[in-house]
Design a binder for these strands. Structure first.
Lengths: 231, 231
DNA sequence: ATTTATATGTGAACTGCTTAACAAAAAAAT
DNA sequence: ATTTTTTTGTTAAGCAGTTCACATATAAAT
């Protein structure tokens, strides 16, 4: 009963996160001893752009946005994701400061792992290193795709893509509450809140979606897909 | 004289590439035995989007472009870089196929390292894994920045940024031959060749740059910087 | 309950950039 | 050398999306 590993809360994440699952008992202990869990309320900032980055963040549960303050002082959302996920990895490996902010879009459980401990695991467990590499690789390819779609597609198509993303990836349901204001939605798509309003209005008029404030119901996924594909 | 490591051509890259420099003699031998060096002429394709990805590519020397075929079948340049650089890492770790193409913009020496060998080194040399992680991290942050600038800046500002990039990072000189056609330049900036022509024309009229076909001379870096910053 | 602040809707005027169409120059192929 | 292809320049018309200004609704604060 007095087993350290049993007291380690990180053990509960072994079946949530693949990188965590490849750790040995001893390594899991190191992981635990170098991390703290913190609860964030919807809307709270988890990482602030510009602050020093001395730890990796693991989003245990919750939906979050990665956003960055651009050259025109406008906020832009780089990515929306949900736990379980490691975030902030590129920052600690490259610069001493965070290059972007991360905020909670729903109530969120997050764990902060000290870089020393994280780095030790990378250096000493090749499988862990490989899994983290996979995570970063996926993030990079995902962002390539998003960036290309953003520049090449028309706004209507790119917004359709975003709705499909919420439906298929984030909520896995055709009915959901968008965790963004119209302005934030604009920052995600790369446009203004006015244009978001207009396109959403068009979609409801064509009976593609049903909207009531923030709650959205997808009525015709096929057409949405077609709009997204044809650009 | 019959030392294997001395016969290994990869040893010459120890002082070119940080990840290579952390390898032991034995590991360098593994590296060599799992790689081939190939010469590419200017314009040749090094990696073709869609093909199977079973190896990592190391650009020893030369300037290259990473480009991707977008949803509207338009080619877009994600990144321009120069050797020494590892490319194609995210592809092998995530999907079995290449998600983008890479082409030589100048004559280029490239080495292909079999994934098995590369993976072995990641798993067994923590320092190597860390350095590769740094590489990917840098790529990700760099691309975040580029993507945000692309959406927020006006074309004139973004083109100015590109010229400064060529000057400071690629050629380290205020005089250089742009290794892109006007169309490619458009694919890099996210616009059409007509607009590229127009902006370049404006810059020459204002005596900011001097242009003769592909050769460019930066006359006033300060103004270029200012244009780039003010969006 | 009332005030204040934030979020959303809506339309008209404006604009940066694209599209399209043609001409000329340079490079590659024969 | 001559033809063919690719690249570049240039213009006018068109439009997708922005900006601005105001009305309304919702949420937060007192």
């Amino acid at each position: 009963m007095n087993n350290i590993v049993q007291d380690c809360p990180c053990i509960s994440c072994m079946d949530r996160s693949i990188p965590v699952s490849v750790l040995s008992e001893k390594e899991l202990e190191i992981f635990c001893n170098n991390s703290v869990k913190i609860f964030f309320q919807k809307g709270e900032r988890i990482i602030k752009q510009g602050t020093f980055s001395s730890n990796i963040t693991f989003i245990k549960s919750g939906i979050f946005k990665m956003h960055i303050n651009g050259p025109l002082n406008r906020d832009e959302i780089l990515k929306i994701g949900k736990g379980p996920a490691f975030i902030g990895i590129p920052d600690v490996f490259v610069s001493r400061t965070h290059n972007y902010s991360v905020s909670a879009l729903t109530n969120t459980d997050a764990c902060f792992i000290d870089f020393e401990g994280f780095s030790y695991l990378i250096e000493n467990n090749g499988q862990f290193a490989t899994e983290i590499l996979k995570t970063l690789s996926y993030d990079l390819l995902d962002h390539f795709s998003r960036c290309v779609h953003k520049t090449q597609k028309q706004l209507t198509a790119f917004l359709a893509e975003a709705l499909l993303f919420f439906m298929d990836t984030i909520y896995e349901s055709d009915e959901f509450e968008i965790p963004l204001t119209r302005s934030e939605f604009g920052a995600y798509i790369g446009t203004t809140r006015e244009t978001i309003t207009k396109i959403i209005h068009d979609f409801t008029k064509d009976k593609i979606i049903e909207v009531n404030g923030k709650s959205i119901l997808i009525l015709n996924k096929n057409i949405l897909q077609k709009i997204s594909n044809t650009g």
